[in-house]
Nucleic acid binder design. Structure first.
Lengths: 138, 138
DNA sequence: CGGTATCCATTTGGATACTG
DNA sequence: CAGTATCCAAATGGATACCG
């Protein structure tokens, strides 16, 4: 219990640190894709991940490689071939990422709905509230 | 299998959408804290979450509320009291978030180490590579 | 093919001051 | 206490062009 508690609430700093890397959407996408497909080339990843720019994919892969989550293999051919896959540590990240992925698939619609309700309420409140600054002169 | 596969790889768009909200570190922190503590006031959250500014905490809470993950209760007292807690949907997010949290606690050090190794290698490479622009005149 | 380099618009987020 | 409002610096990220 004490150990569990420690590992859970001890330092937000570690969470911040790690989340800044693996919490952004491109990283989650890359880990998700590599986890499911095993090994992928740069442009395969680019095609699979909807809307990622070359720049962002490069940066994301470099950061994941730096953190020891993704391995990069260069084949000195012409044209060049570079393959990416998860490291052993990267594979352990697969499970939590998958959990998040499944949660998202399950609750996305509810979130959309919640937003609509919230926004509708907001607009209503805005319409009802007494004008604060802008009222017709006179 | 088909269902599983669909829910996993179908739309990156849903992942992007949701991750943009619950993937940022402050949201994860808030959900983590509320999940473990049940109900918290604004300044309690602020104290618990290391380094969050008032502005970011407000924004994060509004977004989570908008998405139906956090509920906000105002007690019309003086001084004002506002309590936050997870909604039912928010509670379901607890599990994946906890998984991520535990993963982080377990692997943070390995990541730190991996970074050091990577950076050391980088510096070495930078030192070895032929000077491209800046070399001593003469 | 798999990048790097550069430019630039937008977003993010901290600091600060003020309010009900 | 629990915000809102404003300002401004820094980070983010797309578009584009070029390179080995």
């Amino acid at each position: 219990m004490s150990l569990t508690d420690t590992s859970k609430s001890a330092n937000c700093l570690a969470m911040s640190d790690v989340l800044n890397r693996i919490g952004d959407k491109w990283s989650v996408m890359v880990v998700g894709m590599l986890g499911r497909n095993g090994t992928l080339r740069f442009n395969e990843l680019k095609r699979l991940i909807n809307g990622v720019s070359q720049r962002m994919l490069t940066l994301t892969l470099r950061n994941l490689e730096r953190d020891g989550l993704v391995s990069r293999t260069i084949y000195p051919e012409v044209p060049p071939r570079v393959e990416y896959s998860l490291t052993e540590m990267g594979k352990t990240l697969q499970e939590p990422i998958d959990a998040l992925w499944n949660w998202t698939a399950e609750h996305h619609m509810s979130i959309i709905d919640a937003r609509e309700i919230y926004d509708a309420r907001e607009n209503l409140a805005a319409a009802a509230e007494p004008r604060k600054i802008a009222y017709a002169r006179g």
